Simulated scan of single mutants.
Amino acid sequence: MPFIWLAYFFPLAALALGLAVSVLPVPFTGGLSFIETVLLIGTSFAAVHHAEGISSRIGQPFGTLILTLSVTVIEVSVLVAMMLNGENNPGVGREAVLSTVMFVCTGVVGACLLVGALRHREQEVRQQGVNGYLSVIIAISVLCLLLPQNTHAGLMGAVDPFQISFIMCGTVVLYGAFLFMQTVRHRADFMPEASEPAPARPRRLVVHIPLLLAALGGIVLVSSGVAAGVEELLDRLHLRDPDAVISAAVVAMLLLPETITAIRAARANDLQRSINTALGSALATIGLTMPAMVAISVWVDRPIYLGIEPEDRVQLLLVLVLSIVSFGTGRTNLLNGFVHLVLFAIYVMTLFVP
């Protein structure tokens, strides 16, 4: 493949620069932040490449699980760096989770359904597997983004640490239960028809595994510089809701490799793998990213906001209901893709004109 060497260069370069900035007294500059941002984007693609290499050798659904968990590690590291950068940014976590659900369930899913329908007219997915994704996504989205603001404490404008901790434990339990069903109890519901696990090839795994770990480590190390640079850039734009735009920009950047993977799978008439990748990333984010950020905020004694704005509530509930309808028959077509993409365009508009 052309430029395959970049999958080896970016992880090592990001890791080296991250270690250098951590050890040496390097002053923060716009140029350094730009370099770190380029390395982060390139390393994200490299991480997805190596995760896919592992995926192709260990088979589904474990391969998709590795891919989504890798992206979750990347997202948590960047968002935590943004939350802790300078003054506290307590709204970054909730905006990132909301952006991930909206981007995936409208933009990514819509693009996959549209591309797949244009090439194959109609496509099929295993309805039981998709229902599993959606049921947990709906439950966790409501618990994390809607419930905290509608409890007695939330209505009084306070945050009850016990309530939040209990809700976060519940989200982790739900995600763990889903993983058990996906990887052990009902694996067939998440696999394409007549799909067989690929045999392992130790020599290639020996290459992909350390480079994936190097990529994730490099991203963790350069994420603080990227967060500072993104916030400094967007602060100059005087946006009405900077936290929402910053979180959406980071989510869009980090979801780009998975988006490309999902669209390619849909175009190749493998909609099941496409949906596994798309919905898996959304579920991993709300099931793991939010609890991780809440735990870190408690650990460093910084506040974090969970409730979302009224217009965001309407859009979130709309896209969750639409997702149930779109996959309700197990068959998708062009109209499904158009509806999701229109909602995505409206969501992006409300980021800049809330």
Rank of each mutant, 00 (worst) to 15 (best):
L316G: 12
F352C: 12
L15H: 01
M253E: 04
A13Y: 00
A13P: 04
R240T: 03
V115Q: 06
I41Q: 00
D270A: 09
V159F: 08
N85T: 05
L65D: 05
P161W: 14
L205G: 10
L84T: 14
I140S: 09
E87Q: 12
L212V: 03
T261G: 07
E309K: 13
Q123R: 07
E258A: 08
F62G: 02
R302H: 11
T68R: 02
L40F: 14
M156E: 13
A13G: 05
G42Q: 12
V109A: 11
A227V: 06
S165H: 14
E309F: 09
S70N: 01
G18Y: 00
L254W: 00
E52I: 11
L79C: 00
H340K: 12
V130G: 11
P197C: 01
L233Q: 07
A20Y: 07
A188W: 09
V21I: 14
Q123N: 11
A252H: 00
L237H: 06
D189R: 11
V71T: 08
V251D: 01
L113I: 12
Y347W: 15
L216P: 01
F180L: 15
I219A: 00
T151G: 11
P11I: 04
G225F: 00
V130Q: 13
A215G: 09
I138L: 13
S70G: 09
G330R: 09
G337R: 02
T64R: 02
I41V: 13
R240A: 04
C112I: 04
G218A: 05
I137H: 12
H208L: 02
I140Q: 08
F103I: 13
L255C: 10
V348W: 04
C105N: 13
R126M: 10
M168F: 11
H186S: 14
F10E: 05
L143S: 15
V251W: 04
L155F: 14
S77R: 03
F10K: 06
V38M: 10
E309I: 05
V206R: 12
T285D: 14
G229N: 06
T261H: 07
L98R: 03
T151C: 12
A20F: 04
T289V: 15
L114K: 02
N88W: 01
V159S: 15
R119M: 14
T183I: 14
A262S: 14
E95Q: 10
L322P: 10
L114M: 13
G330D: 14
A177N: 07
A244N: 00
D235K: 05
A20C: 08
L155H: 12
L118F: 15
A158D: 15
R331W: 10
P61E: 08
R203G: 03
W5D: 08
T151F: 10
A249Y: 07
G307M: 06
P61A: 07
N269R: 11
G31F: 12
T151M: 10
P242L: 12
A13C: 03
L306K: 10
E124P: 01
F178M: 08
R203E: 09
V92N: 06
V23R: 06
M168N: 13
P354D: 10
